[in-house]
């Protein structure tokens, strides 16, 4: 069956620094990892292209500093890209490179089409506002002005992520890390986004909570058919969640394919090292 990707990314580049004649041509392999020794420019993401298909979970693995999170931030418009294109398969945006849209339009995509769960809940939540309010914030941003409706939606979502009813009006700062992460997931899901970004969601959580959160993500995918990009350096998480996996190193994609294939039969030397250090 031929399917159209819901999110198509082409040649996404993010660099810190202006570059110089020494490093202008990225193919010439003159960088020290992702860093130009002459001008000090860091190429955090180097011409990454990827496709995300409807209903699939795409895993991204790689070591610290390989550009996974920067890639996510670029896709979610948290930071500007140096160059590259991204296309979202929605009726209004077909054929439009979303990186070229105005900041208002980008914000509208974030509010209507995207959900994001950050590694650190501090970035995704307002810690001094109630959990219900945190979820309502995204609904308000998407144009809802009905308190009763938003409160009902928030309560339903918080129920889905197993936050006890009597704590719904509490601020997330009083919650444990796992609970905060679940509130973040509820917030990201609040207006049924077709695309969800998960950046190291289980890192730093204890194993039982981790299992809870992973179960929840799997359930969301099964029941709501949301497409997700999951970034993690934990191969077990990737193995459990992702249908396809991309391996990043120094800002580049060095290997991609079905998760089982990448993990069972790694081709690139780095991937081999990564997989064997797990076992």
């Amino acid at each position: 069956m031929h399917e159209e990707p819901i999110l198509k990314v082409r040649n996404l580049r993010k660099q810190f620094g202006s570059g110089c004649s020494h490093c202008a041509n990225l193919d010439s392999n003159r960088l020290e990892k992702n860093y130009c020794t002459v001008c000090g420019t860091v190429y955090a993401v180097r011409d990454v292209s990827l496709d995300l298909y409807p209903g699939e979970i795409l895993g991204i693995v790689g070591e610290s500093g390989s550009g996974k999170s920067t890639l996510m931030q670029c896709l979610y418009f948290d930071t500007d890209v140096a160059s590259g294109e991204a296309y979202i398969q929605t009726p209004a945006l077909t054929g439009t490179n979303v990186f070229e849209l105005s900041s208002q339009q980008k914000r509208s995509i974030r509010n209507h089409d995207y959900g994001m769960v950050y590694q650190n809940p501090v970035h995704g939540l307002k810690m001094n506002f109630s959990s219900v309010g945190n979820i309502a914030e995204k609904l308000i941003a998407a144009g809802n002005r009905n308190v009763g409706e938003m409160e009902a939606t928030s309560k339903r979502l918080l129920g889905n992520v197993h936050i006890p009813l009597h704590r719904m009006k509490e601020e997330p700062r009083n919650f444990s890390g796992g609970m905060q992460q679940r509130v973040q997931i509820a917030k990201a899901l609040s207006n049924n986004p077709p695309i969800l970004f998960l950046d190291e969601v289980t890192t730093g959580l204890d194993l039982s909570v981790q299992a809870n959160v992973l179960d929840l993500i799997k359930k969301i995918q099964r029941e709501l058919g949301i497409s997700m990009i999951v970034v993690s350096h934990d191969l077990a998480v990737i193995r459990m969640l992702a249908d396809r996996t991309i391996v990043m190193l120094n800002g580049e994609i060095i290997e991609q394919g079905l998760t089982d294939q990448v993990l069972e039969d790694p081709q690139h030397a780095y991937t081999q090292q990564l997989v064997y250090s797990l076992l």
Binding site: F129, V132, G133, A136, M150
Partner: peptide, 17 residues
């Protein structure tokens, strides 16, 4: 950017509380 969800959120919080 005409992003006033914060102002609305404050009122929402008061109503919830």
């Amino acid at each position: 950017e005409d992003d006033y969800s914060g102002a609305w959120l404050m009122l929402f919080e008061q109503i919830v509380k």
